[in-house]
Design a protein around this nucleic acid. Structure first.
Lengths: 327, 327
DNA sequence: CGTCAAGATGTGAGCGATAACATCGCATCG
DNA sequence: CGATGCGATGTTATCGCTCACATCTTGACG
């Protein structure tokens, strides 16, 4: 920065101002400084900047996995929104594990991020303490916690799963199995399971243990589980999956087993990923406004940072049932 | 840090040492300091640390998209490797555009990253200057540039596409179309196209213009393109796609058109994503060691940072042809 | 018992930028 | 024509930490 200042014939303070308060510098000086910056290839040092200004242009975002276009859609939107505002996303992958989340969080806190974005509302005690001490905006995504840590943007997973289950019933399916992820601290899938069970109960449909299947994340697990299921319990007429990934895996498992979809077995998913519309047969699913979730999340963070967000702490982005060929 | 020091009854210098050179502190003091850190919930300030130590524990990685499990596989591995070494990944998405890459790069350089990871070997002049000035390790992924900027880890996309094309010929296919992405600065897909054309020429097979199809990233484009293709040029007997995403889209397009795969139309992909093995019919593809690419990349960066990597600048991770049901 | 080395801890400077305040020049106005 | 105020620029202190060096303690050894 000293080089730039010398070349432009001003002090570094003027260079600093030219960079972040251009309006406070005369047009002539501004141009000289900009020329000097270009000539020297100067890049401001964010470490120094954020050390003195006490806040950094970094937003931390932690997601269970990046191998899932539901999350990547939100990530892309977040990344776009924040880089437009001059912030960078420090991304971490928790692998559906709140201890990993804690570890990542404690590492990232060292950057004194301007805000923190987490998936779900399940966190370790240590994580909560860390977040509390940091005193920055925290947004929990993808669910509507009754007792949010700070802010939350998402949808009612329980209600959506409930609706889909009732829809399947309406479409004539009766023996509806539920294929879920088996991560205990994943409040989204737990809530979806609860919505499913509530609907089944209200509809007077029996849920036997083998109808609630839990598998790890991964297409092949879903596929294998369904092939297993139809062998053991052939009377199942629909499988509702707690994510589109699982649903596509389930669909492939059913096709492998020689079943026709939806005639022999209906499949429903959750997420409406790109593949859901393209796959043959196309996938009936719950559409989740993932870009909107990213957008709203970025919006309330920016408002909070600019001195005051006055809206509700929990923002419901809604969902909708999309019926396609698979059910 | 002053709080911690006061609580532990030492100076901040001792706290600092306890944090990054524990061996230089007596065991008794170390314990007192660690207790104090726990009690106060102290988190070191990386900005201050990297300001004075002149290097930051940040690695910048830029990828065309995150909506692609080929890249997310590499990203996950990179993230795992680097966080194990105490580094954080600052991730950016270029949308296959080298101007966006430049913009992201110039923003991220402000963090004085320890290393930079890019996809492909096509960059703007300004990007190159930026990288040159920064004097940090730069690794280009996913290809084997003849003239790498610094280091590179990948595979020969040209050779792999050449091999796959010859394999398709060997399996009896003659009128082989090539479905590619239409991003001009994507050296991977350009090279794959070149490999395809070379093989076709050597085999004495004609490549008419409508056999080389270019579409934007996205399943629906691939699906639509194939449905269009089979209408116009019904004699095509195979479609080789420059990525598995395209291949799955193509497959779905073919199924929509009522074709049997591979009897009426064979499909081959590139990448061997998770879905490739699960989809029905399973996808013949080029397996790319994406985790290995991430691992090797992390390895040579760490070696370089620790004072000297002496191996070759370009590391070839190889590939293999995987024949499944679709061809 | 004095010397010295090695280990443990402390001291002062400074990394590169910005905040807050100080100063300067110049146009405006009674 | 001097006072006033505002816009443009400079000065100084400081952010939290680590580097290089200084100091102190301890124990081994001749």
């Amino acid at each position: 920065m000293a080089d730039v200042a010398a070349l432009a014939g001003v002090t570094i303070m003027t260079v600093s101002r030219a960079l972040h308060t251009p309006s406070a510098v005369s047009p002539a000086t501004l141009e000289k400084v900009q020329d000097a910056i270009r000539e020297t290839g100067f890049v401001p040092n964010y470490a120094a900047r954020s050390l003195v200004s006490q806040h950094s242009p970094i937003v931390v975002a932690l997601f269970p996995t990046m191998m899932n276009s539901v999350f990547s859609g939100t990530i892309e939107e977040l990344s776009r929104q924040f880089s437009a505002q001059g912030y960078s996303l420090l991304l971490g992958e928790t692998s559906f594990d709140i201890d990993t989340e804690e570890k990542l969080l404690s590492g990232f806190m060292g950057w004194r991020p301007a805000a923190i974005i987490l998936t779900g509302a399940e966190h370790t005690e240590a994580s909560r303490k860390l977040l509390e001490n940091s005193a920055v905006p925290v947004v929990e995504l993808w669910n509507l916690p009754k007792d949010p840590f700070d802010l939350a943007v998402g949808l009612s997973n329980r209600q959506a799963a409930y609706d889909m289950t009732r829809s399947l019933h309406e479409w004539g399916y009766r023996r509806i199995a539920f294929l879920n992820l088996n991560y205990p601290n994943n409040d989204r899938s737990v809530d979806r399971g609860a919505g499913y069970r509530q609907a089944m109960e209200e509809l007077g449909l029996e849920v036997t243990p083998e109808m609630e299947i839990r598998v790890p994340f991964g297409l092949e697990h879903a596929s294998a589980a369904v092939q297993q299921l139809v062998k053991i319990t052939p009377k199942i007429d629909a499988v509702f999956c707690s994510s589109d990934s699982l649903a596509v895996g389930a669909m492939m498992g059913a096709l492998r087993s020689g079943l026709r979809i939806p005639k022999d077995l209906a499949i429903a998913g959750f997420g409406n990923v790109e593949l859901a519309a393209t796959v043959v047969p196309s996938l009936t699913t719950v559409d989740v406004p993932r870009a909107q979730i990213g957008r709203e999340c970025a919006r309330i963070i920016m408002e909070r940072l600019r001195g005051g967000y006055e809206g509700p702490p929990v923002i419901d982005c809604g969902y909708s049932i999309i019926r396609r060929e698979s059910a």
